[in-house]
């Protein structure tokens, strides 16, 4: 049976309206509601289902980020993960942390914890990088099944259905493997009350990147973060002729 490592990132909740800081250095995060990255929720759900189907022996949730990331880990534990590892990254280091850093941390932890399957969301909804799964697989030299919409156990490995531009691609991989979860892989459960209570007592280990020998030195510098352009106000024209005239004036036709 496999041991599954799941990466979960704490991001601004997708129902919250994002505001850019006045100095354009980033977005406002203070006092803003955060939740687990929705694609990571799907990853946790898949790992928990593997355990329920007796395909996995243990599910370990990992999050890299500030102290509040522990709330995200508690959510993963309430959904059914067995234990959690919090790699604390805060302040300026967190601001410039990138998928390469997270991939190094996940790769190291996979070895330390003797994981056979790593599942992460295909991307985080804040930076939209879509790189962590691929880089982790490369660092570990494991096969990868990205954008998974279905994962099944077959023989010695897994059959992964991937969502690609042209439709669906089915691949077979050996284990160990890195998988990234796409939207249609499953519908994540709500943590039930008894499980929320139990999650408070599940083990949560705290580490630093240094403990894992990962250098978090910045590889990028954020020059500017800006709002998307505001849609121009529309106007109502009395008839089609006026519309055509206006479109011609504006050089649209």
């Amino acid at each position: 049976m496999s041991r599954v490592l799941v990466g979960v990132k704490r991001v601004i909740d997708y129902a919250v309206k994002i505001r850019v800081k006045p100095d354009k250095s980033g977005v406002v995060t203070d006092g803003v509601k955060h939740s687990m990255n929705p694609f990571d929720e799907i990853a946790v759900e898949e790992a928990v289902r593997m355990k329920e189907k007796k395909l996995a022996s243990e599910v370990i949730a990992v999050s890299c980020g500030p102290a509040q990331s522990q709330e995200t880990l508690r959510t993963a534990l309430a959904m059914g993960a067995d234990r959690a590892i919090h790699v604390e990254v805060a302040g300026a280091e967190y601001d410039t942390m990138q998928p390469i850093h997270v991939a190094k941390i996940l790769a190291k932890l996979s070895k330390d914890e003797k994981a056979d399957i790593v599942i992460v969301g295909k991307q985080a909804i804040d930076d939209d990088s879509n790189q962590t799964a691929q880089m982790t697989a490369a660092l570990l030299d494991w096969p990868q099944g990205t954008f998974a919409s279905k994962v099944e156990k077959t023989d010695a490995g897994l059959t992964v259905t991937r969502e690609i531009d042209g439709g669906l691609e089915t691949i077979k991989t050996k284990v160990p493997v890195v998988i990234s979860a796409d939207l249609r892989l499953n519908e994540p459960r709500y943590a039930t009350l008894p499980n929320i209570m139990k999650a408070k007592k599940k083990p949560l280990k705290k580490l630093t990147a240094k403990d894992l020998g990962v250098d978090l030195a910045a590889r990028i510098k954020v020059i500017s973060v800006e709002d998307p352009p505001v849609r121009q106000a529309g106007s109502i024209v009395p008839d089609v002729d006026t519309l055509v005239t206006k479109l011609k004036e504006g050089g649209h036709v």
């Binding site: 909740d13 509601k33 709500y190 039930t192 009350l193 008894p194």
Partner: peptide, 18 residues
Amino acid sequence: MESGLIIDGTVTSEPAKM
């Protein structure tokens, strides 16, 4: 939950889930 009035349920403070 102890008293048995609530059999099951979920609780959240995440805006999207709420």
